[in-house]
Structure formats: structure tokens, C-alpha cells
């Protein structure tokens, strides 16, 4: 699959699913055009609902639909999905054990010109506190397509962190994905970079290429799932390398890096070295995505620098 708008992949996948399964419905809050689900509404007008600019009601309606056996996909910008309507998602959805699928678009710096008000650096941290939830951030069109299907079939609440813009495919067509499973993209003996999402996974791959030219062999894992974390794959590669850099388009607190730190602190992996690349307790700002990438230290060079430093200091770590 060539470069493709992720939102188009999301919408097309939902449309295909809807043809196979009459339970699939879409609920939106005046962002159907942004999410790309207008073709869904054209094809299934009786199964797509625009509640207007009312995110709380969107999730309440979604929960009611789920109570009657529907599988609702409710989408809005990630800032509103997490911050504005969290109690509705939590109580009417998750606590009521109703399989509402919440889609938070425009993660982190991809919010770009919408600026700090619309820049969710905290949505994963908020969502990780929901018991039993699946949280995924696909890195490319192939993984997105597969994971929308997995979320639809899970029978549980899920949070899909959806990058809307066009990105290149990382995976070959037909690659299979599971909720709770990451993917090893590259082997390496010196360090492992664990990255999340359509911006940070390519940055991590580029960082690994730079490091290779300097003689450092970095493995790269596409985390994909923040909850549950793929502890098997992650532990295996931390065990092999003894050093790990996490890379996420999100606060360091509460996100992938935090989840890794928790895993390491309570496991046999204690003593491995960890550096988290992410936002350092700051609010978002307005700017281009590339400018913001540098502003918040999320570039390939930031990842490579962290890796170099960890590898150089590896002799100081205690053996694990």
C-alpha cells in the first residue's frame, strides 16, 4: 500500500465492516468531514449520526446504541475525546461494560495549526486509567485497517488514536495485527527503540539508520498498543540489548514511556537503562508539524542522541 490518508483508510474500513456487519454504526460531533466518514453516511444514512457540536451527548448516544447491541465508532479530535467527554466515555461506556469505540484524531503535534488548545499530549495518559480498555495508535495504513477490524470485534471499549494525514505504508499488505501486540521492525544488539504512532515510528526508523552509520545497532519496535502492552516482545528486546528509548508524540508522563518504566521497575529488567522521548510536561503550541517536532524534541535526531548517550553509558549499568 502506498502513502494514503489515514482518515480515508479509517472511513473505508468502517464502510467495509458495515457492509459485513449491520451492528456497525458511526456517531460524530460535527467532525464527520474531518474524520472522513461522510461516505459512510451517504452509504448508510440510517447508521451514521451527527449529534452536532456535543461530545458528551455523542458518547452517551453511543453507549445507548451499544446497550442495544450496536457497535458504535464515535470520533472527534483527541483533545475532546479525552478531556471533554471522558466521564461519558468512562461511565456510560466503560463502566457500563458497553463496547463503545472512541476515536481521538489529530494526536499531539499533528494538530499543528489548530494549536495548543487542540493538541492532545495527555489523551493516552487519561485513557490508560480506564480498566480493561484497548488503546492503539497505528503507525500506517495497513496496521490501521487491521486494527479497526480488531477493535470492532473486541466486545470491549477501545481508544483509537488516529493520525488523519497521509503516511507511507510500513507493513506489506496482508500483514496481521492483534490488539495488545507490537511489531519488531528491525533487529539490533546495542539498544531498542520502542516507538508509537505514524509520526514517531518513522522517526525511530530514521534514527536507527543514522545510528547504524555510526556503528550502533538499534532494534526498533512499533509498540502499536499502549494497553495492553506487549510485554513479551518488549521484555525480550530489552533483555537482549539492556537499553531502551521510548518515542511518543505525547507527554512522557502517563504514556508509553511511563508504561515501560512501570514494566521495568517491577520486573527482571530492573537495571536496564531507559530514556523517554516525549513532551516534557508542557502544553502544545501552534506551528507546522515539522516545527513542532523540533520544538518538543520529537525528531529522529532527538531519538538518536538519546540512544547514543545510553549506549555510551552502558558500561556503567549493572548487569541484568
Amino acid at each position: 500500500m502506498a502513502a494514503k490518508e489515514m482518515r480515508a483508510v479509517y472511513a473505508e474500513t468502517l464502510l467495509e465492516l458495515a457492509k459485513e456487519d449491520p451492528r456497525i454504526v458511526v456517531v460524530e460531533a460535527d467532525l464527520m468531514k474531518a474524520t472522513g466518514t461522510t461516505p459512510f453516511k451517504t452509504a448508510f444514512p440510517e447508521r451514521a449520526f451527527d449529534v452536532g457540536v456535543a461530545e458528551a451527548n455523542m458518547l452517551g448516544v453511543a453507549a445507548g446504541l451499544a446497550a442495544e447491541g450496536k457497535i458504535p465508532f464515535a470520533a472527534t479530535f483527541g483533545c475532546f475525546a479525552s478531556r471533554r467527554a471522558f466521564d461519558q466515555f468512562f461511565m456510560s461506556g466503560a463502566y457500563a461494560r458497553l463496547p463503545v469505540k472512541l476515536v481521538g484524531t489529530d494526536p499531539g503535534i499533528s494538530a499543528a495549526f489548530n494549536g495548543g488548545t487542540h493538541m492532545p499530549f495527555e489523551d493516552i495518559g487519561i485513557m490508560r486509567m480506564v480498566p480493561g480498555i484497548d488503546i492503539v495508535e497505528p503507525s500506517d495504513p495497513v496496521s490501521l485497517q487491521a486494527l479497526v477490524r480488531k477493535l470492532a470485534a473486541s466486545g470491549k471499549v477501545g481508544y483509537l488514536r488516529l493520525h488523519r494525514k497521509a503516511v507511507d505504508a510500513i507493513y506489506p499488505e496482508g500483514e496481521t495485527f492483534e490488539l495488545g501486540k507490537g511489531k519488531l521492525l528491525r533487529e539490533g544488539k546495542d539498544i531498542v527503540i520502542i516507538a508509537l504512532g505514524a509520526i514517531m515510528v518513522p522517526e525511530a526508523i530514521e534514527a536507527a539508520q543514522r545510528l547504524k552509520s555510526e556503528g550502533i545497532e538499534a532494534a526498533v519496535i512499533d509498540a502499536i498498543s499502549v494497553k495492553p502492552l506487549d510485554t513479551g516482545l518488549i521484555s525480550e528486546w530489552i533483555g537482549k540489548t539492556g537499553a531502551v528509548v521510548t518515542a511518543e508524540n505525547h507527554q512522557k508522563m502517563g504514556g508509553l514511556g511511563s508504561a515501560l518504566a512501570e514494566l521495568i521497575a517491577e520486573s527482571e529488567l530492573q537495571g536496564c537503562r531507559l530514556t523517554r522521548i516525549g513532551v516534557a510536561d508542557e502544553f502544545g503550541e501552534v506551528g507546522t508539524q515539522d516545527w513542532l517536532k523540533k520544538r518538543f524534541g520529537l525528531s529522529a535526531e532527538d531519538i538518536a542522541a538519546a540512544a547514543r548517550s545510553l549506549v555510551a553509558g552502558k558500561g556503567k549499568r549493572k548487569q541484568i
Binding site: 458518547l59 452517551g60 448516544v61 453507549a63 445507548g64 442495544e68 458504535p72 461511565m91 456510560s92
Partner: peptide, 18 residues
């Protein structure tokens, strides 16, 4: 399931819609 006020009426909308 209800308790956090204001949410049940939205869920009732979804139930009626379904």
C-alpha cells in the same frame, strides 16, 4: 448504568435510536 448526572438521557436517545 447511571449515576453521573445528565448521562442517562443521552443513553436513552441511543437506545431509542437503535
Amino acid at each position: 448504568t447511571t449515576g453521573s448526572l445528565g448521562q442517562g438521557i443521552s443513553a436513552a436517545c441511543g437506545i431509542a435510536l437503535a
